[in-house]
Amino acid sequence: MALLRAEHVTHYFGGLCAVSDFNLDLEQGELVGIIGPNGAGKTTVFNLITGVYKASEGSIQLNGQELVGRKPNAITQMGIARTFQNIRLFKDLTVMDNVRIAYYNGLKYSPWESLLHIGRYRAQEELYTNKALDLLEFFKLDQFADELAKNLPYGSQRRLEIARALATGPKLLLLDEPAAGMNPREIEQLMEFILWIRKEFSLTILLIEHQMRLVMGICERLKVLDFGATIAEGLPAEIRANPKVLEAYLGEGGDQ
């Protein structure tokens, strides 16, 4: 059975059709890319999967459980985490707190225990804090643990966002333009990094990207969106040769 299955997902903003008849079957462990020109509805697909928007029509299922109609935090709890196109860290909180917040789901103490710092509070706090710090170490961010997130350099902020997403314990990770603002060398590193976290955390990854180099380099399958409609899908090599895709891009961004 597919990990994530989207069937006939359609979404309207007012009268505008942002996504029409989107279908997707993601198998456990796959790495799939969504590409398409600006405004093609790629991020909207992410917002529909994660519950930020409620799909107008269609169904999205994770392990056979319906997602449409659930709140974002409930969907995160079921095992989907994401990053954002424009970094959305908790800027005025420390790097450590950014990650700790993402452990909210596994919280095993009640509000009462939190008010008086009694019962399971102490042990749980230590557990999550150490888990968070281990995760930060894994991402080579532990030396910044006490810094405010906004003070990190850009690349580290991107990494922190991924670390924070992983702290929620996802099965499926959605990356929204992870290579935005990176130079070719950094993109090379990012590609390795993505493959590495997929292995380490046994993830399934769905990513949106404009950088053809990255998409063609690591994605096993691609979907191409244009004006909300899926215009092509298949192996990277097939997509590269597809005339419809070239037309949609009009040469723009294509890695000829």
């Binding site: 994660t50 930020v52 709140k71 974002p72 935090n73 995160t76 709890q77 985490a81 994401r82 954002f84 959305r88 860290l89 908790f90 800027k91 005025d92 909180l93 917040i101 993402a102 909210y104 789901n105 924070r164 997403a165 702290a167 929620t168």
Partner: peptide
């Protein structure tokens, strides 16, 4: 800091 992001972080 960011209500939508916090919701999405669970």
């Amino acid at each position: 800091e960011d209500e939508i992001a916090s919701d999405l972080m669970g």
